[in-house]
Design a protein around this nucleic acid. Structure first.
Lengths: 187, 187
DNA sequence: TATTTTTGTGACTGATTAGTCAATCTTAAT
DNA sequence: ATTAAGATTGACTAATCAGTCACAAAAATA
């Protein structure tokens, strides 16, 4: 599993830097210090590598967020935890986050759309569903709230990386942004 | 200017469908019913075509939004107009909007970042700046509010195209989403 | 009509690409 | 030590690509 991860890490760096088709498989292998043939032992095609990398990153992010979620109660604090964890992860793993976005907005996304389990399984999605049920959150479609929630995260992430703030200022802003979001979606 | 626009339109369709490098210049020329050489008469390189298409679409969107902005007062209604116009345009020109997003999240974006006039010139950005000055909007960095505003538009756009709603339901939701956004950013 | 200028053409090229495969190396079991 | 199974290699190939250029058609000018 060692080599596979090295290849994935090399691919991530190059895809983010040069785009999917702007990165030759041979270049990825070189960056990972393996032969071209080795890459194709682990991934049958380039597309399989691209999709596998996407799924791997998605899982890493999910694990990180769930790890940090202390309480499993349906409360404002749980929402805050998901919000803050997601942002922390996205800021500590900028290339990973960038890759997710690059993939989401590329034609490859439709490859995954049917295959992968949809939003319905994400922790945030489930929490919102429950939040609406117990009337903690506005009575609106779950995936609508979900879209706004993630959009807020995207917007804030973009702002922070565009104007690199001091650590403390950053945390303050994340907290403020969450309160604004909460005011928007609470019932 | 006729041929140039035909080429741009063909490029848009193919880039959205197959990605930047997934689309050969010869294929674009074919789709536009011109010779390969003709394409390179209008655009010196493929990258120039990609960037020109981005700028063209951005301008089209801006023109549409400004056309619809009746009052130039700094008021909630002006914000609503920008919000609704942007969403209307994005829903009536899905490929165009998709292209903008694909470009924004691709490595090509950095090519444009320094070249093109930044956010500071966009009508929405100016309006927010003024809105903050007259204390209509929360006293926070302009580009922070700007990021959240556009993020809300992205999130709503994504929700609407993912669950294609009836026309009336769609307008209702846009209106509701704006009120939520307003509650979030008003002072 | 004759001449110049602009616009359009598509076969061509040198470079690059994803993916293959026969040979070699590594590891572990007997 | 010998063998077998699996992992790794990188030269190779057939295909594809962006961009060129000598020429032709069309448009504009005289």
């Amino acid at each position: 599993m060692e080599k596979k991860d090295i290849i994935l890490a090399a691919a991530l760096r190059l895809f983010v830097e040069n785009g999917f088709h702007g990165t030759a498989t041979a270049r990825i292998a070189q960056e990972a210090n393996v032969a071209t043939g080795t890459l194709f032992n682990y991934f049958r095609t380039k597309e399989e590598l691209i999709v596998a990398l996407y799924c791997t990153i998605l899982k890493e992010m999910d694990d990180f967020i769930l790890e940090r979620l202390e309480s499993h109660s349906i409360s404002k604090e749980s929402f805050r935890s998901l919000f803050v964890s997601t942002l922390s992860w996205s800021l500590e793993n900028r290339d990973h986050y960038r890759y997710l976005q690059q993939f989401d907005h590329s034609p490859y996304f439709k490859v995954v759309e049917e295959t992968i389990a949809g939003q319905e399984e994400y922790p945030l999605f489930v929490l919102i569903k429950n939040g609406i049920d117990i009337v903690l959150i506005k009575q609106l479609p779950v995936s609508f709230i979900y879209s706004l929630f993630t959009a807020q995260i995207n917007g804030l992430h973009y702002y922070i990386i565009s104007n690199d703030l001091r650590e403390d200022k950053e945390l303050e802003l994340i907290s403020e942004a969450f309160e604004m979001l909460w005011k928007m979606i609470e019932d």
